[in-house]
Design a protein around this nucleic acid. Structure first.
Lengths: 195, 195
DNA sequence: TGCACCATGTAATTTGTTACATGATTCG
DNA sequence: CGAATCATGTAACAAATTACATGGTGCA
C-alpha cells in the first residue's frame, strides 16, 4: 500500500485532477512508479476519505467538470511518516531482460528487433527528460539550481530517470552489437541510430 | 502472466528445484524480476501441468526430497513465442524515489539516512555482480567471452544489473551531497564511503 | 466521419502478498 | 540450545489488470 505515497508525492507540485495525475504517472513519475488510471482514481477517493488530500470541483465550459486535489496537513504528516519508515528494496520487472536472459535459446533476429525498439524508446525518453530538466532549472546552471532552487525533489528523480534511460540505451546497443557479431558476423549492419 | 516466462528463462541454465529457483530470484534474476517463494512454487506446478516444464524427484539422504525441473520442447516454443511478442514497457517501483520526489517537504536528515542505506546496498550488489561476471567469463576476456561464449544471456542481464546499481550508487551519493549542502551547509560532512 | 482528448468511474478477474504450517540437518 | 538452511506448500487477504461504460469537444 505505497501507491498512496506516490500519489501524495505527485500532488506536492500543485493541485491535480485524476486525469492530470495519470499524465504525471506517464511522464516523470513513471521513472519510479507505475499505475493505471483506474488505480489512481480509486486511490484519490480513498485518500480523500482518509483526509490525506482534499478536492474541489472545477466547472469548465467546454470540458467536463473536474476535481482538483491537494495534500492536507494530515497527508504531509503521512508522507513524513512514510519517509522515516524503512524502504522496500526497489522492484523491477522487465520483459525485455527476460528475453535476453533466454538469448542463447531464442531467435536472434527477433531479439535484436526488440532491443532496437527499446533503444529507440530510451532515446525518446532521454530527449524528453533532458528538456524537462532544462525547463525545471530555467536560466540557472544545474549547480546553482540544486543549491538554491525551491523544488529539487522532482529534479533529482528526473535526473535518475535520465541516467536509467541512458543505461538502457547503451546496454541495448552493446547487446545488439554482440548478437550481430555472433550470428550474421560480417554483415554491413544497419546503423542503429537511424531508426 | 509473464512470471512464467521469467521462470522458464531461469530454468534454461539447468535443472533447478523450487528452493534453488528462489535463490536465483534473489540474485541475478532480481535484476529484472521479483517474485516470492510461494509464487514460484505455485508457478512451477502450473507450468508442469501445462507441459512447459517437467520435474523429477531427487531423494537425498540428509535433506528432504526435492523436485528438479527442466524446460520441455513445448516450454522452449512458449519462450520463443513470448520473445516474438511485443514487450510491455519496463515497470519500476521504488519507495526511495517516492521519498526523494517529496524531498522539499520532508525531513532532510531522514532522507539522507535512507539514501546512504541504499548506496550501501548498491555497493554490495556491485561487488556481487562484478564477481558473478568474472566467474561466468572464467579465464577469458569479456570481449572474447561475449563473442564465443556458450551462454551469454545471463551475462548480459547481469551486466545490466551491474550498471543499474552503479547508477543507483552514483545518484544516491550526488543526492546526499546536495541535501547536505542545502541543509547543514558548512558541516565537515562524514565520508559516505565509510559505512 | 472517425479519432484523439478530456474526465471519471464500476465490475470481474488475475496476481501478488502475508500469515501460517511442517520438519529434519548443520553450524556455532 | 538457538538460528540458519533445505524443502514445499495452503489459505486468507490485498492489490493490480482487464474489460466495460459514458459522453462532450476539437481536429483532419
Amino acid at each position: 500500500m505505497a501507491l498512496r505515497h506516490a500519489v501524495l508525492a505527485a500532488l506536492l507540485d500543485g493541485e491535480l485532477s485524476g486525469y492530470q495525475l495519470t499524465k504525471a504517472f506517464d511522464l516523470g513519475m513513471a521513472n519510479f512508479w507505475h499505475a493505471q488510471p483506474q488505480q489512481l482514481y480509486a486511490e484519490l477517493n480513498r485518500l480523500e476519505k482518509d483526509g490525506f488530500i482534499a478536492g474541489r470541483d472545477v466547472v469548465q465550459e467546454t470540458r467536463p467538470t473536474k476535481r482538483l486535489f491537494h495534500v492536507t496537513e494530515a497527508g504531509l504528516a503521512e508522507l513524513e511518516r512514510f519517509t522515516a519508515a524503512s524502504a522496500k528494496p526497489s522492484f523491477i520487472r522487465d520483459d525485455l531482460l527476460v528475453k535476453v536472459q533466454a538469448a542463447d535459446h531464442v531467435d536472434t533476429a527477433t531479439l535484436i528487433a526488440q532491443l532496437a525498439e527499446r533503444a529507440a524508446v530510451a532515446r525518446a525518453r532521454i530527449d524528453l527528460f533532458t528538456d524537462l530538466l532544462r525547463t525545471m532549472r530555467g536560466e540557472r546552471t544545474e549547480e546553482d539550481f540544486l543549491r538554491h532552487g525551491a523544488r529539487i525533489g522532482p529534479y533529482l528523480t528526473c535526473a535518475r530517470g535520465l541516467a536509467f534511460e541512458e543505461g538502457n540505451r547503451d546496454w541495448c546497443e552493446q547487446a545488439i552489437g554482440i548478437l550481430r557479431v555472433r550470428s550474421g558476423a560480417g554483415l554491413p549492419a544497419a546503423d542503429p541510430q537511424s531508426g
